[in-house]
Each structure stands twice: as structure tokens, then as C-alpha cells.
Design a protein around this nucleic acid. Structure first.
Length: 258
DNA sequence: ATGGTGGTCCCACCA
């Protein structure tokens, strides 16, 4: 069984105890972290090694920053932290091969608001992502792409679609970009293994959004076609969102029988 | 209309 999870922690410094606590109970084989908001040399490798995890990091001061934890050794010579041919100072991707599966951890730009420079950056970034995945699929059959996509794929993934209509995270262009990824042959693991009513993965800190379950499902695990038949399940764990001083995101974990 | 970060000890930026 391969248990692989994603979690936007919104500062690993602040959330380290939450991450350790969650790892101990959920026991993922691989954990993709986003928004660690620290430089690579500040990453607490020793603490995770004590729990049995190797780590690779693409860190950045203040903003962004991604990391991958894995119980199995990672093939570091396969690691990538940039789209080929696209210069981006922001540390948002980290890919590596683990046990014959290529894992790609993403922190997709938020986009701020439709029509802004940041929104345009998001769309361009997603275009580079699609191109990168297309080229990866030529040499890799087994791929898992996971992270904070900052896109709610359909209105089903939004607590109050009318309220969000046309806005960032749900706009047509973002959803078209999402579909272009799915059309490469990826499957949204959460939708492949439904567990009843949609659970959200993110709730705004404001307006008591979590208490009122005003959330969006924007954190995802995608599996390439070659892995879909091995998918056992995919769950969103909202418990850490109830903890003191939580991240605004919940961890999402998919299980594969390989 | 909250929360994290960092440069200045309140404010700007980002989500």
C-alpha cells in the first residue's frame, strides 16, 4: 500500500507540531507540503528523519516553498524544481521519482482576482504545467500529481457556487486549465472514490468559514491512467483544521495498492 | 475582515 498525501501548511515553522502529530496518526508514505514559507537550509530534516522520513525541499523566504517527505528513499537525481524553459523565482514545484512512481508536488498560484497580473501569472503557470506534464508522460507511465491547485474543479466543490460565480479559484479559464490537465489522462482521485457528500479542503480564516463549513475543494491528488486501477481510496481529513492555530487547508490522502 | 511574514515595533504584502 502506498499512502500519499498533500497538505498546504501555511508556514511550516508555525505548523510543525501539527504536521508531526498528523504524520504519526495518518502514517503517509509520502507527504507533499506547500507554503512552507522557509528557506531550504532552515528545513528541520533531523526532526522528520527521527520519524523515518527522507526529505527534499525547494524553499523560499516568506512566501511559497514546497517539500516532499518520503519513507522510501527518493531518486534525487530525478528531482526537478522548475518547469523547463520557464524562469520563476517562486518555489512552487518539486518532483521526484520514488519506487518507480514520479511524484510532482504543486503549489499553484492563487491568482488574487480575475483580471489581475497575478491571475494572468496563474494561467501562464498552468500552461507551463500542462506542457511539462505532457513531456513527462512521454517517459513516465506512473505519475501522481498532487498539491494545492487553487482551483475548485466544479460547482460541486464549492459551498455556495452563486457566491463564488466567476471569481478566482472557480473561473472558467481556471477550470479550462484544470480540464486540460485531466484530458492528459489524469484522474481526480477524490472523485474516483466518492465517500458521500463533498468534503472541502480549504476554508478561509475569516467570517468563521470553517465553523459554517463555507469551504472549497482546491487541494487535489491526480493519478495517471496507469495508476488508476490501483487506487484504493482518497480522503480529506478535516480534523487538523479543528486544532488550535490551524492551517487554512486540510490534508488530502490517497491510497494505492501497488 | 483572519492569519503568516518581515521590516520596523505598526504596517504592507500575500493568501
Amino acid at each position: 500500500m502506498l499512502k500519499i498525501a498533500t497538505w498546504n501548511v501555511n508556514s511550516l515553522k508555525v505548523r510543525l507540531e501539527h504536521v508531526l502529530e498528523w504524520i504519526k496518526s495518518a502514517q503517509p508514505d509520502v507527504l507533499a507540503l506547500q507554503e512552507i514559507k522557509m528557506q531550504s537550509d532552515a528545513f528541520p530534516h533531523d526532526i522528520f528523519r527521527e520519524l523515518g522520513y527522507h526529505a527534499i525541499v525547494s524553499g523560499q523566504k516568506t512566501y511559497n516553498g514546497v517539500a516532499l517527505l518520503s519513507k522510501q528513499p527518493m531518486l534525487v537525481e530525478t528531482a526537478v524544481s522548475d518547469f523547463p524553459g520557464y524562469c520563476d523565482e517562486q518555489r512552487r514545484i518539486l518532483g521526484v521519482e520514488i519506487d518507480g512512481v514520479f511524484i510532482l508536488n504543486l503549489y499553484v498560484p492563487n491568482g488574487a482576482a480575475v483580471g489581475t497580473d497575478k491571475y494572468l501569472y496563474k494561467l501562464i503557470w498552468l500552461d507551463h504545467l500542462r506542457n511539462f506534464l505532457t513531456s513527462l508522460l512521454n517517459k513516465r507511465q506512473k505519475m501522481i500529481v498532487l498539491g494545492d491547485f487553487n482551483i475548485a474543479p466544479t460547482d460541486q466543490d464549492v459551498h455556495e457556487p452563486m457566491l463564488w460565480q466567476g471569481g478566482v479559484l472557480v473561473s472558467e479559464k481556471e477550470r479550462a486549465a484544470w480540464k486540460s490537465l485531466i484530458d492528459l489522462g489524469f484522474v481526480d482521485c477524490y472523485r474516483k472514490s466518492p465517500v458521500g457528500e463533498t468534503q472541502y479542503s480549504w476554508w478561509d480564516y475569516r467570517q468563521a468559514a470553517f465553523r459554517r463549513n463555507m469551504g472549497l475543494r482546491i487541494d487535489h491528488v491526480l493519478a495517471s491512467a496507469a495508476l488508476v486501477d490501483h487506487l484504493q481510496g482518497c480522503e480529506i481529513d478535516k480534523i487538523p483544521r479543528t486544532w488550535e492555530r490551524p492551517s487554512d487547508h486540510a490534508p488530502v490522502m490517497a491510497s494505492f495498492l501497488l
